[in-house]
Amino acid sequence: MSKKSFRQAINEALRQEMRRDPTVILMGEDVAGGRGGSAGTQDAWGGVLGVTKGLYEEFGETRVLDTPITEASYIGAAAGAAVTGLRPVAELMFVDFVGCCLDQIMNQAAKFRYMFGGKARTPLVIRAMYGAGFNAAAQHSQALYPLFTHIPGLKVVIPSSPYEAKGLLISAIRDDDPVIFLENKVMYDVEEDVPDEPYAIPFGEANLTREGDDVTIVAFGRMVGMANEAADRLAKKGIGCTVIDPRTTSPLDSETILDCVADTGRLVIVDESSPRCNMATDIAALVAEEAFDSLRAPIRRVVPPHTPVPFATVLETLYMPSVEKIEAAVTATMNHRVTEKV
């Protein structure tokens, strides 16, 4: 056990799984970097933010494959390799680039098993960065997990910390279905204790990061940390929050969400993806349908506005959910008074 960054935790998961299973391969744009360059360097980048650094050195060019900047062909190749005996981990760099290769994910990899009557296994992992907070603007900041969650056949994982990232990525690699693994780019330097040994965190089981009696907060990825901070501040004011990190949006641990809402009667959902048809609306629908009678106040959603992600810091800050916005939503739901109809 030692302190590891989100970046190191992911790197270690990849390294340990590649050591364990020779069919695990890595591919993507500059996952090594430097191939063919005039400097003759190898592993020049190790991924655009250094997440895969050093893997080329250990596993060589047959298992760490740099690709041309052609997402459709290599994401499709990863899908094709997955149904023919390899366990590819393909890096899409920014999840926004899915626009260039959605067919290969949505119409091919996700549907093989069902279309082929259960005869295919597609052990594919697609890693990608998501999220705003880096002034990366509209085409490099989106949180597109609802898009993937919408597609049957895909599993969608959003780790909220280094510990979670390592265990969930190992599960993703060992999984026999296509998994979209989304890494919040603002979190790569976040550190915490992470076991040195490999471990797998199962999909579809939410993690409770805080327990309280008054309000249930469901948050995803980086939002979990914000929700925790809001919960800690609110606890000092005597408001107890349960914070649920679902870990995976597909499968979704609806049982835990419903149980917690039954206990608290109040629900705030924190989701940094665009607000229409996102996880917040999905969970709000679930709770409205299955736990209507438990609710003591309207469900509140802490979500960005329905705009592209802006560039300027002042606008991006306005755009994003924040600890303060979560606190305000929790406070509002606590202050709600049912008015009797006369």
């Binding site: 265990g167 076991p195 040994e197 490999p198 471990y199 965190i201 199962p202 409770l208 327990e211």
Partner: peptide, 17 residues
Amino acid sequence: IGRRMADDVLRYKRLDG
């Protein structure tokens, strides 16, 4: 037996081996 206790146990139980 709270949830957190089970969580703590699982942290070790889920290590490979």
